[in-house]
């Protein structure tokens, strides 16, 4: 996923590897620069809390979703990050930030980043409750980003693919 924080112009791109209730960093990029990160995150379903393990140091961030942003307080500092869906000013409705209509698993990715697609083209297959669901391009455009890989678990509403018109 791509993020923009309120106190910096840099766009961060993050892909996590999720195993059960533990997440590790599969890919972390700031702008064009790839950054190595050994941070792992554990999710406690019971309390709804997440814990960060940063090289043996345990952190307990407080996180709240407010509108489209996440407010994160960690080590006494509060940050606001918003998903950088797109470079254009358009809204989610017409810019093609395709979201998951249900929680599930990505079964198939049919396109690559940078590829041109036509309206109605199948982009991804999502599986949930033993049903397959096709993610279709709502308009013609260029694939700007694919936020999940085959086998990834997605939550309802997660942005799967960004299309640039």
């Amino acid at each position: 996923m791509k993020w923009k924080s309120d106190n910096s112009d840099k766009i961060w791109s993050v892909r996590l590897l999720i195993e059960g209730e533990r997440a590790s960093v599969a890919h972390l990029k700031c702008g064009d620069e790839t950054i190595q990160s050994d941070v792992t995150i554990t999710f406690d379903k019971q309390s709804g809390s997440v814990y960060v393990n940063d090289d043996g140091k345990k952190l307990n961030p407080k996180i709240t979703k407010v509108g489209d942003s996440w407010w994160v307080t960690v080590s006494g500092q509060t940050f606001v990050v918003t998903e950088a869906l797109h470079n254009s000013k358009s809204t989610t409705e017409d810019q093609g930030g395709l979201t998951a209509p249900m929680p599930g698993i990505v079964r198939q990715v049919n396109v690559d980043t940078g590829q041109k697609v036509r309206k109605g083209q199948p982009l991804m297959v999502l599986e949930a409750m033993k049903m397959e669901h096709q993610i279709i391009a709502p308009q013609a455009g260029k694939i700007e980003a694919i936020h999940y890989n085959e086998g990834d678990r997605v939550e309802m509403g997660s942005v799967l693919i960004s299309i640039f018109e």
């Binding site: 960093v25 995150i41 996440w70 990050v81 939550e155 997660s158």
Partner: peptide, 23 residues
């Protein structure tokens, strides 16, 4: 905080579906 930590946490929060359990 370590570089990218906030963005990693936000990604994890999305992926674990925390938006439904918090504010």
């Amino acid at each position: 905080t370590p570089p990218g930590l906030i963005e990693i946490i936000a990604t994890a929060a999305e992926r674990f579906g925390l938006s439904k359990s918090t504010g």
